[in-house]
C-alpha cells in the first residue's frame, strides 16, 4: 500500500511539474466499470475482461504519459484494477505488480525510420487492453489467447503513404517483463493502406519457446458511417502441442453522431494434437466455438456507454454450465459498461 501511495505521489508530482514546465507532455487514459449478467446465472464465458457475473465491477484506471522532444520520445503507461493487473499484466519476481502496460523509448533516426525499445503493447491482433481502443467490451477468443505485450527492440520504416515495415527481436515469452532465457523471438509487420480508409497489417511473431503466430488485422471505413474490420490468426504452439486458428469480423454502423451499433462474429478453433502422458500417447481433440456479440457505443462527451449481448456456442459440452448445473454447449450474457476516456 505504501508503495502504491508513493507511486501515486510521484506521478502527481510529475504531472504538476510537467504542467508547469512543459506543455508537450501528453497525458491520456481511461476509467471503466461494468455490470455483467450471465443468463445461466453463473460465470460462464471466459472473456478476458468483464469477468464478474451479476456484479457491478471495476475494470481499471489507466494512465499513459507520452513526451516527444525533437526526435526522442517515451511512453509510460500504468494501470490499476483487475483489468490493469491480474487480467492483463504479469507479476514481478516477488509476485508484486509493476502496473506497467507500456514502457518504451523511441528515436526517429529520420522522418521515416524509427527505433523503439522496451515493453510494448503487442502489434498482433485487432483488440487491445485499453477499453478505449475496443468497440466491444468483452473480448474475442483471438485476443484472449494471443499475446498482450511483447518486450523487445524494433525498427520501423515508412516506405510511402501506402506501405510501412516493422521488424524486431522480442523476448522469448509473451507478456513478460523479462525473458525466460533469451531475446530470440522474431517479429515483423507489413502495414498496407491500399486505398484511403483501408488499413491492413500482416504480422508474424515466431520463436522456439513461444511458437509461431501469423496474424492479419485489417479495417476499412467504407463510408463515413460503415466500417468493416477483420482479424484472422493462426498460432502453432511450440513442440507441436496444438495451437489455434480463428477469424473475427467486425461490421459497425454509425446511426447518429453519438451512437454506433456493431457485431463481432467470431469462429475460433483449438487445434487437436497428440501428447504423451505417463508414457502413453493421448490425443487431444480439436474443439471450436462460434461467438456472436452485438454491441452499441453511445457517447456522451468523454463517456461511452456500452450495452452488449453475447452468445457463445462450442461444438461440444463441457465448457459451459446451464442454470441447473448440467453441461451446455451454449452460454449467453449481457454487459453494460461505461468507459470514461481522458
Amino acid at each position: 500500500m505504501k508503495r502504491k501511495l508513493l507511486l501515486l505521489s510521484l506521478l502527481s508530482a510529475a504531472v504538476f511539474t510537467a504542467k508547469a514546465q512543459d506543455s508537450t507532455l501528453t497525458i491520456s487514459g481511461s476509467v471503466d466499470t461494468y455490470f455483467k449478467y450471465d443468463f445461466a446465472d453463473r460465470k460462464n464465458i471466459g472473456t478476458s475482461f468483464a469477468t464478474d457475473h451479476n456484479s457491478m465491477s471495476i475494470g481499471m484506471v489507466d494512465i499513459a504519459l507520452k513526451k516527444k522532444l525533437q526526435r526522442a520520445s517515451f511512453v509510460g503507461e500504468i494501470s490499476f484494477g483487475p483489468r490493469g493487473q491480474e487480467q492483463s499484466l504479469p507479476t514481478g519476481l516477488n509476485g508484486d505488480f509493476y502496473h506497467i502496460q507500456n514502457l518504451y523509448v523511441s528515436y526517429d533516426v529520420t522522418d521515416k525510420f524509427a527505433l523503439t525499445a522496451g515493453y510494448m503493447g503487442t502489434f498482433i491482433g485487432y483488440e487491445v487492453i485499453s477499453p478505449v481502443g475496443n468497440f466491444n467490451y468483452s473480448t474475442s477468443y483471438l485476443f484472449t489467447n494471443g499475446p498482450f505485450q511483447n518486450a523487445g527492440f524494433k525498427a520501423s520504416y515508412v516506405v510511402n503513404d501506402k506501405v510501412s515495415l516493422m521488424a524486431g527481436i522480442f523476448n522469448d515469452v509473451w507478456n513478460g517483463y523479462r525473458s525466460a532465457k533469451k531475446l530470440d523471438n522474431f517479429g515483423a509487420q507489413i502495414g498496407l493502406t491500399p486505398v484511403e480508409g483501408w488499413s491492413a497489417y500482416l504480422n508474424v511473431l515466431t520463436g522456439k519457446t513461444s511458437g509461431t503466430i501469423f496474424d492479419l488485422t485489417t479495417a476499412y471505413q467504407i463510408t463515413d458511417a460503415f466500417k468493416l474490420g477483420l482479424n484472422a490468426a493462426d498460432w502453432s504452439a511450440p513442440e507441436s502441442a496444438g495451437g489455434y486458428t480463428g477469424v473475427a469480423l467486425y461490421p459497425q454502423i454509425a446511426v447518429s453522431s453519438i451512437a454506433t451499433i456493431g457485431v463481432r462474429a467470431e469462429y475460433f478453433k483449438w487445434k487437436g494434437y497428440t501428447t504423451m502422458e505417463e508414457g502413453v500417447e493421448v490425443d487431444v481433440e480439436s474443439q471450436n466455438v462460434k461467438a456472436i456479440t452485438l454491441t452499441a457505443n453511445i457517447k456522451g462527451g468523454p463517456l461511452t456507454f456500452i450495452p452488449e449481448v453475447r452468445l457463445d456456442s462450442w461444438n461440444n459440452d463441457g465448457n459451459f454450465l446451464k442454470k441447473n448445473g448440467t453441461p451446455s454447449k451454449q452460454a449467453s450474457q449481457f454487459v453494460l459498461a461505461a468507459v470514461y476516456a481522458f
Partner: peptide, 15 residues
C-alpha cells in the same frame, strides 16, 4: 484517436 502504443493518430478513413 489513441492507438495501442498510446500515440494519437488519425482515425483511418474518417474525413
Amino acid at each position: 484517436q489513441r492507438d495501442r502504443y498510446a500515440n494519437y493518430v488519425p482515425v483511418s478513413g474518417k474525413k
